[in-house]
Structure formats: structure tokens, C-alpha cells
């Protein structure tokens, strides 16, 4: 059973899992009355009138059995109609797609930083177990985890706002990006800047992303360090480490080649969870730095009790977690060949 066969199997499993997610969200919608549910189908503000609600209830059979309702609802969802968000004055799907790139940018920079730095520190901690270096590393990472995100963010902003301002773009850059001469291919400002041949925009966007990324990394690194440390300690106690040493491998090779790969397995799961969590929004960081991504969108919608938006967001979250799990599983199978049989 090779890696490829395993990947194909997991991809096939994807479909029932996604259906499961939709079922879950649908179950939550059933907690509302039919009139409220009708708001999930309207596409613009004009449609939110009582007469229209009756029409919608008839069209989508909202008074009939759950199965019929699910059928019509799922068709709408697959067409991209997640309802209309009153708080944002645009269709939910558009709002989500609009907010996503900001969160994606935060993830692209902070996850690799967190994971790589965390693995390195966790290894050091494990190798020098119970010695001052171990205690220092653990203390620093726990301190990071104990920081109130908004507090740390505010302090960073107050100290460095000159070089690393808040928001996603400076005023000048913003005018350019939203003008007609600039094409927003991806919504990721750093990438778009390069694609449009305007590297200074990328630089500007990069300057704005530094502080949020640092905040996120400092706060989350403790999680990776802790897991890496304990799984490394476990790996170092195994028989193959002594066997490797008996072959004549030195300490560095033993740690880097033999122990580390085995220790990475739980870290991969954690990295997946972190990525999904970040993608679905870090409310506080986004609020403090005015970096308006999915978290900010969802928090805003929740505070306005904007049901279609919140539900649409929950559906989106579920899908992201499913894909994150998929990535984690595939990475697992690449690192640990024993998984490929299961």
C-alpha cells in the first residue's frame, strides 16, 4: 500500500465527511422558526419583505419535512447562496470570500514561523531535559501563551507603530490597490503587489503584517514547544535510538535523523488544528491590528445576531477543518509509513 493509494482513499472519504458537516449546520438551522429560516435564502436587501418570505417559504418548501428542506437548502448552498448578511449588507458568501484573504495572509506567515521555531525549541528542550535551558525555553513559551493577545498587540503597536503600522495597507497603497489600474488576483496584498508589477505595494503590505504575525507566533508557540518536547522525550527513550548509537551515529545525527521524524507526528496534528483555527479567525488579533479577516467578520456578525452570516461562517469553518484534517492525515502518512496500511 503506497502513499498514493492512501491519498486516494482519503480523498474519497472527503465527500461523506463534507456532507456530515452540512447536515450538522442544517440541524442547527432547524432550531429556528420557518420565517427565520427563510432569511437564509434571500439574496439582497430588497427581498427582505414579508410577502417575499411567504414566497420563499413556498419555493423552498420550508414547511415540509426535513428531508425536502435539506434538499432545497443544499442546492442553494452548492449554488453559492448562503443567504444575505444584514450586518454587512452583502451576500454572505461574498462577505466570507472578501474577508478570507486577510486571514489567509496571517496564516501563511505565522504558521510556518510558529511550527519551525516551535520544533526547534521543543527539540532543544527535550535534549537538555531538566537543565536550565529546558526550564528557560518552557518558561518563555508558557509566558507567551499567558499573554493576553490584545495587551501584547497593543504594546507592540504602541512601540513600533512607526515601522509596522496597523491595518492592512497604508493610505497611499490603499488608493492604488482599490483603483482600476490594479487587479486584485488573489486578495493577498503581498502577492498581488508582485503580480501587478508593483513590488512597493508588497513591501507596504508586508510591513503591516509583521506585528500581527509576531503576536500570533509568540502566543501560540508554547503549544508546539510543549507537544514537540514530550513527543521527543518519548522518541528518545525508544530502542532504535540506542541501536542507532550502537551503529556509531553521533548525538546530532541521532536527534535530527532518527528521533525527530518520529516526534513530528503529534506536532503535525497540532499544526493542522492551529492552521484551521487561525484561518477561521483570530478575533482579538484582527481587532487590535485592524486586520479585518474572517475572525473580525464572524465576531461582528455574532454581535449583531446576524444568523445567516454566522451560519454561513460555521459552514465555512466546518469545511476548513475537514480539509485541514485531510492535509494532516496525508502528511502523517508521508512521515509515518505504518499509517498507510490502516
Amino acid at each position: 500500500m503506497g502513499l498514493r493509494a492512501y491519498i486516494v482513499r482519503r480523498l474519497l472519504l472527503l465527500i461523506p465527511t463534507l456532507i456530515g458537516v452540512t447536515l450538522l449546520i442544517f440541524a442547527v438551522t432547524q432550531l429556528f422558526s420557518p420565517t427565520q429560516r427563510a432569511s437564509l435564502y434571500i439574496r439582497s436587501e430588497k427581498e427582505a419583505t414579508p410577502e417575499n418570505f411567504n414566497r420563499i417559504m413556498a419555493k423552498y418548501h420550508l414547511n415540509e419535512s426535513v428531508f425536502v428542506q435539506y434538499y432545497y437548502w443544499i442546492i442553494e448552498v452548492l449554488h453559492g447562496n448562503l443567504g444575505y448578511s444584514m450586518s454587512k449588507h452583502m451576500p454572505v458568501l461574498n462577505a466570507i470570500i472578501g474577508a478570507f484573504p486577510a486571514s489567509a495572509e496571517l496564516v501563511i506567515f505565522s504558521i510556518p514561523l510558529t511550527v519551525i521555531l516551535g520544533i526547534y525549541l521543543g527539540t532543544i528542550s527535550a535534549v537538555h531535559r531538566d537543565k536550565p535551558l529546558d526550564h528557560a525555553t518552557r518558561f518563555l513559551s508558557i509566558a507567551g501563551w499567558s499573554l493576553p493577545t490584545f495587551w501584547f498587540g497593543l504594546i507592540l503597536l504602541a512601540l513600533f507603530y512607526d515601522w509596522f503600522p496597523s491595518g492592512r495597507l497604508g493610505a497611499v497603497a490603499r488608493n492604488v490597490v482599490f483603483s482600476t489600474e490594479f487587479t486584485r488576483y488573489t486578495g493577498l496584498n503581498i502577492l498581488d503587489g508582485l503580480l501587478n508589477g508593483q513590488p512597493w505595494i508588497s513591501l507596504d503590505a508586508f510591513r503591516h503584517v509583521v506585528l500581527p504575525v509576531i503576536t500570533l507566533t509568540v502566543v501560540q508557540i508554547a503549544l508546539i514547544v510543549r507537544v514537540m518536547r514530550s513527543s521527543m522525550l518519548e522518541a528518545l527513550g525508544k530502542g532504535y535510538i540506542t541501536a542507532a548509537r550502537a551503529k556509531g551515529l553521533n548525538q546530532k545525527e541521532v536527534i535530527n535523523k532518527h528521533a525527530r521524524r518520529n516526534a513530528l507526528i503529534p506536532v503535525i496534528t497540532l499544526a493542522g488544528v492551529l492552521t484551521a483555527g487561525l484561518l477561521t479567525g483570530v478575533v482579538i488579533t484582527e481587532t487590535v491590528f485592524n486586520y479585518y479577516g474572517l475572525g473580525y467578520f464572524a465576531a461582528h456578525a455574532a454581535m449583531q445576531l446576524d444568523a445567516p452570516a454566522v451560519l454561513g461562517f460555521a459552514l465555512f469553518t466546518g469545511i476548513i477543518y475537514v480539509f485541514a484534517n485531510l492535509m494532516v492525515d496525508i502528511l502523517y502518512a508521508y512521515v509515518d509509513p505504518r499509517i498507510r496500511l490502516g
Binding site: V21, V28, G277, G281, V283, G295, A299, M303, V310, T317
Partner: peptide, 11 residues
């Protein structure tokens, strides 16, 4: 679990 904790709490 389908809803991120903080956001759910906010709602």
C-alpha cells in the same frame, strides 16, 4: 465544536 469558541461565546 462547529463554532469557534470565542465567537460562540460572543453570540
Amino acid at each position: 465544536y462547529a463554532f469557534p469558541g470565542l465567537i460562540f461565546a460572543m453570540a
